[in-house]
Amino acid sequence: MKILYTNFHAGDGGGHTTYILSLAAALAGRHRVTVAAPKSSRLYASAQLLAGVEVIALEFRNRLGAMTGSGWRLRQLIARERFDIVHVNGSADHRIVMLATLGLKRTRPRIVFTKHNDLPVSGLSTWLKGKLGTDSVICVSDYTRRRLAKTVYDTKVVWVVHHGVDLGRFAPVRSEVVARLRSRWREAVPRDALVLGSIAGTDCNKGWLNMVAAVALLPAAQRERIRIVVAGRLPDALQCARVDALGMTDHVIFTGVLSDVRPLVAALDVGFVLSQRETLSFACREMMAMGKPVIVSDSGGLPENVEAGVNGWIVAPHEHEHLAQLLARLLGNRLEITLAGMAARARSVAQFSLQTFVERTEAVYQECLVRIPSLAGSGSVAEWKVQRNSG
Score class of each variant (00 low, 15 high):
residue 82 R to N: 14
residue 159 W to C: 03
residue 104 L to F: 08
residue 16 H to P: 00
residue 149 A to C: 02
residue 27 L to A: 08
residue 304 E to Y: 06
residue 183 S to C: 12
residue 107 T to I: 06
residue 366 Q to S: 12
residue 218 L to Y: 04
residue 117 N to D: 14
residue 213 A to M: 05
residue 367 E to S: 14
residue 288 M to G: 11
residue 36 A to P: 02
residue 272 F to T: 05
residue 84 D to P: 02
residue 94 H to F: 11
residue 132 L to E: 05
residue 208 W to I: 04
residue 292 K to D: 05
residue 135 D to K: 01
residue 18 T to G: 12
residue 56 I to V: 15
residue 221 A to Y: 00
residue 58 L to F: 03
residue 76 Q to L: 09
residue 342 M to W: 03
residue 365 Y to M: 13
residue 333 N to W: 09
residue 139 C to L: 13
residue 350 A to W: 01
residue 54 E to P: 02
residue 261 V to A: 15
residue 272 F to E: 04
residue 84 D to M: 05
residue 360 R to A: 15
residue 333 N to G: 11
residue 151 T to F: 13
residue 375 L to E: 15
residue 372 I to Q: 15
residue 177 V to N: 03
residue 157 V to W: 03
residue 319 E to H: 15
residue 44 Y to P: 07
residue 285 R to W: 08
residue 104 L to A: 01
residue 112 V to Y: 01
residue 103 G to E: 05
residue 332 G to I: 02
residue 157 V to P: 07
residue 160 V to P: 08
residue 24 A to I: 02
residue 328 A to G: 15
residue 296 V to H: 01
residue 179 A to Q: 13
residue 246 L to N: 02
residue 378 S to N: 12
residue 86 V to C: 14
residue 74 L to Q: 06
residue 238 L to R: 03
residue 343 A to K: 09
residue 87 H to N: 12
residue 300 G to S: 09
residue 287 M to F: 02
residue 312 G to R: 04
residue 310 V to H: 01
residue 78 I to N: 07
residue 160 V to K: 10
residue 180 R to C: 10
residue 241 A to Y: 05
residue 240 C to I: 07
residue 167 L to F: 05
residue 121 V to P: 14
residue 188 A to L: 14
residue 15 G to N: 00
residue 9 H to K: 05
residue 76 Q to I: 11
residue 269 D to K: 03
residue 280 L to Y: 10
residue 290 M to H: 07
residue 60 F to R: 02
residue 345 R to N: 10
residue 364 V to C: 10
residue 329 R to T: 15
residue 233 R to T: 06
residue 365 Y to E: 04
residue 390 S to E: 10
residue 26 A to C: 09
residue 290 M to L: 10
residue 132 L to M: 10
residue 172 P to N: 08
residue 265 V to H: 08
residue 229 V to I: 15
residue 95 R to F: 12
residue 283 A to I: 07
residue 273 V to E: 11
residue 10 A to H: 01
residue 127 W to E: 09
residue 226 I to L: 12
residue 64 L to C: 11
residue 293 P to I: 06
residue 58 L to W: 04
residue 37 A to K: 00
residue 215 V to S: 07
residue 390 S to H: 01
residue 230 V to P: 03
residue 151 T to Q: 07
residue 308 A to E: 00
residue 201 G to S: 07
residue 325 Q to G: 14
residue 58 L to K: 06
residue 196 L to W: 01
residue 232 G to K: 05
residue 71 G to L: 12
residue 257 V to C: 08
residue 197 G to L: 10
residue 258 L to S: 13
residue 132 L to Y: 05
residue 351 Q to A: 12
residue 205 N to D: 08
residue 186 R to W: 08
residue 314 I to R: 04
residue 142 D to F: 04
residue 234 L to S: 14
residue 136 S to E: 09
residue 299 S to C: 10
residue 207 G to T: 05
residue 332 G to N: 13
residue 215 V to Q: 01
residue 360 R to M: 15
residue 153 Y to K: 07
residue 199 I to F: 03
residue 39 K to C: 13
residue 382 A to M: 11
residue 305 N to S: 13
residue 239 Q to Y: 03
residue 286 E to Y: 00
residue 234 L to D: 14
residue 379 G to D: 09
residue 247 G to W: 08
residue 385 K to H: 11
residue 14 G to P: 02
residue 93 D to M: 06
residue 354 L to R: 13
residue 340 A to V: 01
residue 246 L to W: 07
residue 372 I to G: 10
